[in-house]
């Protein structure tokens, strides 16, 4: 499965590139990622949440890096869902913003895991990546993921349809934190 998405962030290309290059930032805005841990100069360990409360983990390496232009990575070893990604950073015509072009490739296996992954992405897999990039833009432009009463769970919002009513959170809900 190949997914592409793009957004424009009103920040200089060096800043936008640097934020993405620190792969540990990715879970702040990517809905399915629990954690990305840097394990070396070009290597990292990724943990994604999967259906039924299970996690899927894999190692990845950066295979290409052109400062302020391009980052590409791919999973290594025996990943459950082999995957690869590339991001291009292009100065926007306004002279102050950065276009971010993301491409992801998932090699979805057969069997139970494949079915679970397919269900996870649902009928509109692009929507998830679009929402990820919207949050990426929010974090860079405003400092954090924006929460509303109807969609208070930040990057978990996609799972919440129908949403909770647009009325203030109870104390119990509030205690769950932004990524409950």
């Amino acid at each position: 499965m190949e997914l592409t998405a793009t957004t424009t962030v009103r920040k200089p290309v060096t800043e936008v590139f640097a934020f993405w290059r620190d792969l540990q930032n990715l879970p702040t805005f990517m809905g399915h990622l629990e954690e990305v841990r840097t394990t070396g100069d070009r290597t990292s360990h990724w943990v994604a949440d999967a259906p039924f409360g299970q996690n899927v983990e894999w190692d990845a390496e950066i295979v290409e890096e052109v400062q302020a232009e391009r980052i590409a990575w791919r999973s290594t070893g025996d990943a459950d869902v082999p995957n690869a990604g590339v991001v291009r950073f292009v100065p926007a015509p306004d002279g102050e913003s950065t276009e971010v072009h993301v491409g992801l490739v998932y090699d979805i296996p057969g069997g139970a895991i494949g079915k679970a992954v397919a269900r996870y992405f649902g009928e509109e897999p692009h929507q998830q990546l679009d929402d990820d990039l919207r949050r990426f833009k929010q974090v860079l432009e405003t400092g954090e993921v924006v929460r509303s009463d109807g969609a208070p769970w930040g990057k978990r919002a996609r799972k919440e349809f129908p949403q909770r009513p647009a009325q203030p959170l109870s104390d119990a809900e509030l205690e769950k934190g932004p990524d409950a």
Partner: peptide, 22 residues
């Protein structure tokens, strides 16, 4: 107040404040 729409004075088209932008 920080996105391109806000910078252009198009506040009701703010690009960041709608969590249900999708």
């Amino acid at each position: 107040g920080a996105c391109a729409a806000c910078a252009a004075g198009l506040y009701s088209c703010c690009e960041n404040t709608n969590p249900n932008a999708g």
